[in-house]
Amino acid sequence: MTERTLPGTPLSDEDMQQGKVLTLNWPASLRYEWDTGVAIGRFLRELKNGRIIGRSCHRCQRVLIPPRMFCERCFRPTDAWQFVQDSGSVNTYSLSHLRWDASRVEEPILVAVIEIDGSSQGGLLHYLGDVRPEEIHIGMKVKAVWKPAEEREGSILDIRHFRPIDTAQDGPA
């Protein structure tokens, strides 16, 4: 297998658009309702209350975010609910110039994995906000910016984003 021409018939965008080959279009309709379950169900209810809750495993001493009713390391039920802070630090971050469907956005979307204070390296994917992109760095201390209580609906979007901790406003990190 070296220099020989391999089989396969490539088509260009024009081939498709100009109908050089026959095609069949099928807009799939795949709709689901995913049960939130015990752990994430409670997690979402607490978000509505403006709080972040985890589950603790007394054997490995971890506080799990996102919460789960079992500890995948110890392979036993987790033991207790535990509220954690609504602050944390940036584990990693990115500036996304693409929407979910790969189309481009004007202003980059600021995204990060936030290690939540009070959890055992429990991370949440979320947005960063109230920050200039060049100021973002790994280890930056951040705090949740919540939607007003009346707008919260038990969703990860009840937190609008995480913003840098302002020591004047929030006290020492």
């Binding site: 069949l24 279009n25 099928w26 807009p27 799939a28 689901y32 309702e33 995913w34 049960d35």
Partner: peptide, 13 residues
């Protein structure tokens, strides 16, 4: 509670 959603795919065969 169930969280509604979809697989946002369509196919061109």
């Amino acid at each position: 509670r169930a969280w509604p959603g979809e697989f946002p795919v369509s196919h061109l065969y």
